[in-house]
Amino acid sequence: MYVLQFRNTVVTVYIDNFLIFTAFLFLIGLGGVVLNRSNLIKTFMSIEIMILATVINFAYMSYIDKSKIGHIFSIVAITVSCLVFAMVFAVYTKNNNRGDLLDDDGE
């Protein structure tokens, strides 16, 4: 448990291993987006890792509270994000006539 103080506001933050894990996962995704500049697939995968890191929090929250709201939200978020990724990739592939579809700089 950590206590953060900002001016007169005191915020108590409970941090356990699970939240550290999701934060680590999020940073991996962020690193992937920042470091990778050429491959579209890698960028998409990195963003998906970031989304999953966020969505795992919903499931964890649901597990602690014994409620179902987090589970449902996480399932919907994953489904919708997969759908969007698939669509964007389809549009990009359709509009790109080159053989090297994935590498923007033709690696």
């Binding site: 960028t43 963003i47 989304i51 966020t54 969505v55 709201i69 987090g70 549009v91 990009y92 509009n95």
Partner: peptide, 23 residues
């Protein structure tokens, strides 16, 4: 298309993070 998608996705991730905190 890809650039607009990335911007939208970035916005969605932030929205999800805010939603987690609120819920």
């Amino acid at each position: 298309t890809v650039k607009i998608f990335l911007m939208n996705k970035f916005s969605s991730i932030l929205f999800l993070m805010a939603t987690v905190t609120i819920i």
